[in-house]
């Protein structure tokens, strides 16, 4: 797993590559919490390099979503690979996450 954070004025783009599963969920959580605690109100998670996510990983997504909702901020996902999108669809989570097909669309919100 590789995480890249790109903070810009007004929003932060986080890119996550590889797998997010039980073995590295803690690491992923710490990285994401750091971004959240910086007070950014708009986090865009670029999932173009994400090729596997387990339920432990989904939990982190949900934690971030809840935190952002609590501060009336936004947590937007984009560039989901079909397999990842499928997981979101099956679990019904695509109904509560704003999901966009590309970064431009995510930025436009």
């Amino acid at each position: 797993m590789k995480i890249q954070v790109e903070a810009t004025d007004g929003y932060t783009i986080v890119s996550v590559d590889g797998r997010v599963d039980a073995t590295n969920a803690n690491e992923f959580e710490k990285s994401m919490m750091k971004v959240v605690e910086e007070g950014c109100t708009k986090i865009i998670l670029d999932c173009s390099g994400l090729n596997y996510i387990s339920s432990s990983g989904l939990r982190i997504f949900l934690i971030v979503l809840k935190k952002m909702m609590a501060i009336k901020g936004q947590f937007i996902l984009c560039n989901l690979q079909p397999e990842i999108k499928e997981i979101f669809d099956i679990s019904g989570l695509s109904s509560i996450f704003p999901i966009y097909t590309n970064k431009e669309a995510a930025l436009a919100t």
Partner: peptide, 29 residues
Amino acid sequence: NAGHNPPVIIRKNGDVVMFEKSKFIPVGL
């Protein structure tokens, strides 16, 4: 169905149909 994998219904005549995907999120959120 709260975000679970859709089950499969197997008819007596051999028809196999997977349920539609869940419209609801997992419980506990």
